[in-house]
Design a protein around this nucleic acid. Structure first.
Length: 255
DNA sequence: ATGGTCGGCAACCGA
């Protein structure tokens, strides 16, 4: 079973790139973030011929998540337990006897802003979401754009970026509290090489200088993590003619 | 050098 996560930065703007990538890599489960499309405008016509099943939740202009699957998708749930009014950042489903939770976590804007407190609190509420609904011994995948680089190895300038909302110690601690519930970062399980990123800012010629961040993650509880045979970042979509600023992360499981 | 570029959507916001 192959699982992938990709922040597409507008599903409609990236439609041909996504369809090409799907056809080439044929993931069994494909989680996308920042679809930036309302449900009524979701490009169903483009995905029907692929044979994928899919579920999605979007809103106008911002956010938006979706899950594509080769197998049946059941028990879909949108949003965190206590906030049905912000549903376009989390979509949960059951596929092939496992639970998948796909999140687009708030970016946070600046450490002085209320948005940063909201981000930190979002992680806290997400931990409660896992505590209330699941056990660490259940097969659970938590994937998506977390907007946090967990370790110094995951950013191009760990000293200079300490004050950034995506590398701030408080943000990393907030992420680690959710991870400590029972997740394994399956990408880091397989590779400890530096310079492996999933995001490069459109500005600054960041891609050419590899000024990147590893913000997109595939986390698995122990029953799944021990069956993870490989994990890698596919940089080729970031080199495309019209790339997203993010690129997919992939994990393979004997499942 | 404290910049720059995207997407959505119709003026800037969010990243």
């Amino acid at each position: 079973m192959k699982v992938a996560s990709f922040n597409v930065n507008s599903l409609r703007a990236r439609l041909s790139l996504v369809l090409r990538w799907l056809a080439e890599h044929q993931p069994d489960i494909f989680a996308v973030q920042e679809t930036k499309v309302q449900d009524v405008d979701f490009p169903t016509d483009a995905f029907e011929p692929t044979g994928y099943k899919y579920v999605f939740k979007g809103q106008k202009s911002y956010n938006g998540v979706a899950i594509f699957s080769r197998s049946e998708i059941t028990n879909v749930k949108l949003g965190l337990n206590d906030e049905p009014k912000d549903p376009a950042r989390l979509i949960k489903a059951e596929i092939n006897g496992l639970v998948i939770v796909n999140t687009y976590i708030p970016q946070g804007y600046s450490t002085e802003s209320e948005k940063f407190r909201y981000k930190l609190n979002w992680f806290s509420r997400l931990r409660s979401f896992f505590e209330k609904g699941f056990k660490p011994t259940d097969p659970v995948l938590w994937v998506g754009d977390f907007n946090v680089a967990p370790q110094p190895i995951d950013v191009y300038d760990p000293e200079g970026l300490l004050g950034h909302v995506c590398f701030h110690p408080e943000a990393r601690k907030a992420l680690s509290r959710v991870v400590q519930w029972g997740f394994v970062d399956v990408f880091r399980m397989h590779s400890h090489q530096p310079g492996q990123y999933t995001f490069w800012d459109y500005r600054l010629n960041s891609l050419g200088r590899n000024l990147g961040w590893r913000l997109d993650h595939i986390m698995a509880t122990q029953p799944l993590a021990k069956k993870c045979t490989a994990s890698y970042i596919d940089k080729t979509p970031r080199l495309a003619e019209k790339p997203s600023d993010h690129t997919p992360v992939v994990a393979e499981f004997d499942w």
